[in-house]
Design a protein around this nucleic acid. Structure first.
Lengths: 124, 124
DNA sequence: TGTCTATGTTGACGGTTGTCGATACAGATG
DNA sequence: CATCTGTATCGACAACCGTCAACATAGACA
């Protein structure tokens, strides 16, 4: 009976960083706190290997991929694992174990939010 | 007569990194080279101070601002200068000296390109 | 010319990051 | 149970990065 699990609600990092953050960069100056939050996401995509991993997951069918499908990016397996963890901590990916394999999935709302940050009012 | 100047065409870094780069992250996996290029821009926005500086310039009237208008972000003047240089090298800002002051301006096409990278087809 | 202000550069220091090999853990299968 | 495979963690190391004080440079103005 001690065998039930805590629901995977989302780690606090991801949950906090995602939802309400930030008007377009062109609308008004970001506050220090907003910048801190938002920079975390940009930083996560600021490494070539991580960006490729993210793109591999995002472009995979269903927006989700097994680690085994995407680990051919020229670095060792521990490094891949490390980068996927970083992407997860930044709230850009979520992961789920299904049997032997672990699947990573993009968080579409975050993608959209980051897009909004950059797109709207390309000039003001 | 030795007093003429080379036209400020744009430094090669900025010129090269900007134009044609990259389909939406969700469309297909980025190649290593594409990832290298694109990551440079995300990385530039991946520091809170730089992100604030960028936002300060982008949200300033005309999408341009004097250094003196934006240097109150809690770090020393050399640090501000350093970060502006990084943003420039990443192709996100351009600068121009006008008399005593130096003005930084956002590169709207780059902003739009980055937005496209993230927005289109939030899920595929 | 000299001086003042605005901005950039240099050099150094401490903290962070990307990487790997070794190892640990989880689930499947025998 | 043992073993095999897929993935995560650990520990270490070199490289990189953000920061500052000190100094350098550029233009304005007297």
């Amino acid at each position: 009976m001690s065998n039930f699990k805590v629901l995977p609600i989302l780690d606090p990092e991801a949950a906090g960083a995602v939802a309400p953050c930030c008007p377009p960069l062109t609308e008004r100056p970001l506050t220090a706190e907003e910048a801190e939050q938002t920079a975390r996401m940009f930083k996560a995509l600021g490494d070539p290997v991580r960006l490729r991993l993210f793109s591999l997951v995002a472009s995979h069918e269903g927006g989700e991929a097994c680690v085994c499908d995407i680990s051919d990016v020229g670095v060792s397996q521990p490094t891949v694992s490390h980068h996927l963890k970083k992407l997860k901590e930044a709230g850009l990916l979520t992961s789920e174990r299904r049997g032997t394999w672990v699947y990573y999935r993009v968080e579409p709302s975050v993608l959209a939010a980051m897009g909004r940050l950059l797109t709207s009012a390309a000039l003001n």
